[in-house]
Amino acid sequence: MQEISDRPSNAIRDIFGRGKVLIGMIHCPAFPAAPRYRGAAMDAIYDACMRDAEACVEGGLHGLIIENHGDVPFSKPEDIGPETTGFMSVVTDRIARAAGIPLGVNVLANAPIPAFAIAMAGGAKFIRVNQWANAYVANEGFMEGRAAEAMRYRSLLRAEHIKVFADSHVKHGSHAIVADRSIQELTRDLAFFDADGVIATG
């Protein structure tokens, strides 16, 4: 693995106690207030997430990411309501208590501040952010990296123990506006803005 940062720590090893890990994704059903929510009881939603988590653990995965995948179409960060943070915090806490493996949180679309709040409330060890630095055009429109405000919010929470895993050249949109820069350069920007790990997507 090529080093892109001079920091001595390794977030994967710090969180999981090993150098290579398999991380599964818990795609939560639609939560109340999402367009595809059809009135399911909250216990039914939580139970569906728990069943997926149990299957992942039984399959030998080392970690899980909790994601509000059912909330399609995804809102931009400034339009995500507090209900999403509340529901995801409950899911994360329940899975953390039952699964016994490290958890991460990804709030779609590109919302690291709610993700930090959920991780802090629910006991997750890291967050995933699709666009941490720079910008791109996604299904939701123009998406800017939110590293500066997110890291200040992490400091406000005293949540420096919660790591940031950031996508490089995320697969969900067009990068034409940064096409004059290489993927290597964009990846180094993640390290420069203090991401703790880099995710490569197809």
Rank of each mutant, 00 (worst) to 15 (best):
S75R: 15
A98R: 13
L108Y: 14
G60M: 00
V170D: 13
A48Q: 14
G104T: 14
N68L: 11
W132R: 03
F142H: 04
I95T: 10
H62R: 08
L103T: 00
M151P: 04
F142Y: 13
G86I: 08
A179Y: 07
G19A: 14
A96N: 15
T187S: 12
H69Q: 13
A179V: 05
N134E: 12
A159P: 07
E185I: 09
E144L: 15
E54T: 07
K171L: 13
R154G: 01
L103V: 00
I12P: 02
E58N: 07
V21K: 03
V57G: 05
E3Y: 05
D79Y: 13
F193K: 03
G145N: 10
Y136V: 11
G86V: 04
V21Y: 04
L108S: 11
A115W: 06
K76M: 14
H172G: 15
N134T: 05
G70R: 08
L64T: 04
D189L: 11
D93H: 03
G104W: 04
D14R: 08
Y153K: 10
E78A: 15
A34Q: 05
Y136I: 02
A53P: 05
M42W: 04
R158V: 04
V178E: 08
I113K: 09
P32S: 05
V91F: 01
G202W: 05
I80S: 12
V72P: 02
A133H: 08
V198C: 02
R97F: 00
I15H: 00
P8E: 03
S89T: 03
R158Q: 10
A119D: 01
S9A: 08
P29T: 13
A148T: 11
R36T: 15
P8K: 04
P29F: 04
G60T: 02
A11M: 01
M120P: 01
A138K: 07
V72G: 00
R181A: 05
K125C: 01
P77W: 15
H161I: 02
E78P: 06
R94A: 10
K163G: 00
I183H: 06
H169W: 11
R18E: 12
P82E: 12
H172K: 14
R154Q: 13
F87L: 08
E54W: 11
S168G: 07
H172S: 15
L190A: 02
A150L: 10
G86K: 09
P82D: 13
M25W: 05
A34E: 12
P114R: 12
R154T: 12
P114G: 06
N130F: 06
E185M: 07
A119N: 01
